[in-house]
Design a protein around this nucleic acid. Structure first.
Lengths: 241, 241
DNA sequence: ATTTACGATAGTGTATACTGTTTAGTGACG
DNA sequence: CGTCACTAAACAGTATACACTATCGTAAAT
């Protein structure tokens, strides 16, 4: 039942790490809400979906667990994490502190190339404004991780990425259906303050921005639909090159 | 070569997770610098040291890698992480932001029991002051994680614990030999400001406190002694109940 | 003598087999 | 009918086997 048998050429080039591919794919599936919070993730089934063994899935689930996207209890099936409201508040609070650090690091120190990249991103956000597909959700989150990237601080980058993805989950659970999550013009204002080198203003806009996003979410728990796991994951299998 | 053969009664009670035990032990070994940065950690050898299989070791090394205490590259042996100075600076910067959040959360909100616990801890630090054994190092770090615990914010707790342990590594690499790392009286002052509810002061003391710890470390790389891995780990084996 | 090619050894990546625990389904008993 | 006990299936925890990759020493070729 090796993958060589069923898919002889799939990873023929050079293997290395199956785990990474599955990790990326599963992570996206969760963040883009193809897998609703609470969805069961038995190691065998997930493995079958991606054509890998439990060994690989296990390590992936471990990683996702420390990132808070999956929750695991001993001898129980893993599930897509389903954070409580108070956990959610905690995450947002940490996020505020983290992004404050990002802003402090960046204020007045953006290269023109970086400024360029940020403006381009905001433009993309504006274009995606109308349809609230996964596209818009993803872009809004990526603005923050893009900022973090520019600090060059590895740990800061990882933490911001982590809280941002957790926030996606939280908003999926408790957010209003059509809140566009990040007001694009707030992003614009942050960029402006950063290039002006106006640290105080940039910090306070970011802070309010995040507060706003957090308080925009305080509503109805959405119903959890039960569907077939393999169905839901089929789209993401291709991505696990 | 199962552990039942060699140690029939060791984990007779109820198993569950061997991994947790090994994780704790290995983590301590690194933080307390029994395992110097750069030390090679082959999965088999570590497994033998603790009497478990590679499977378990592998998951543990994975966890420690995401925490930054171990570094892994594909198809290469894992090693105890050996962060660069600039990585070190990055970690300290994140830490400042994180602990700022801790202070903001706690200022003026400490229960008397919590205040009690903090004062007791500082007292313990003072007692351990003289001998700069692992005891003193551990206590100094634990003051910060103790504070974080009191926020009740799971994520914040995890992050602070993570940066604190990474900082231990960094100071081990670049710190002066006998810098007592955290001046105990600074801890005392932080507590005082917190109970007064004086958030601004508490934040700035903590900030300077961390800055001081960070700048106290900027010196000679210590030589790396080469010793037998199993020797070094023998003390920690018992802890992996 | 120095460098390159090659082979042995050590080590990681992944699958699979086995064991123990949880979960869910079924029937007996209240 | 409900609920309790019991059994079978599903599932996680762990060890091990095998394939592939890196590492290092040794010998051949320059």
């Amino acid at each position: 039942m090796t993958n060589q048998n069923s898919l002889p050429t799939k990873r023929a080039s050079r293997a290395g790490n199956l785990a990474d591919g599955v990790y990326q794919a599963l992570r996206r599936a969760i963040i883009e809400q193809a897998l609703a919070p609470g969805t069961k993730l038995p190691e065998d089934s997930v493995g079958e979906s991606f054509g890998v063994s439990r060994t690989v899935v296990r390590s992936v689930l471990g990683r996702l667990t420390v990132e808070g996207l999956v929750s695991q209890q001993p001898n129980k099936r893993a599930t897509v994490a389903s954070p409580s409201i108070s956990e959610g508040r905690g995450v947002f609070q940490v996020r505020r502190g983290l992004e404050r650090t990002v802003i402090e690091t960046l204020a007045g120190r953006l290269t023109s190339a970086q400024t360029e990249a940020l403006r381009a991103h905001v433009a993309a956000e504006e274009r995606a404004q109308g349809r609230d597909g996964p596209e818009s959700i993803r872009l809004a989150g990526e603005f923050h991780t893009l900022l973090a990237d520019m600090t060059g601080n590895e740990l800061l980058i990882r933490y911001v990425a982590e809280v941002a993805s957790r926030c996606s989950l939280i908003l999926a659970l408790y957010g209003r259906p059509h809140s566009s999550e990040c007001a694009v013009n707030e992003h614009q204002m942050i960029i402006d303050a950063l290039v002006r080198g106006d640290e105080a203003t940039a910090v306070s806009i970011m802070d309010e921005h995040l507060m706003a996003v957090a308080t925009r979410g305080l509503l109805d728990l959405k119903p959890v639909r039960e569907r077939d796991l393999k169905d839901l994951l089929s789209d993401y299998r291709a991505a696990a090159k």
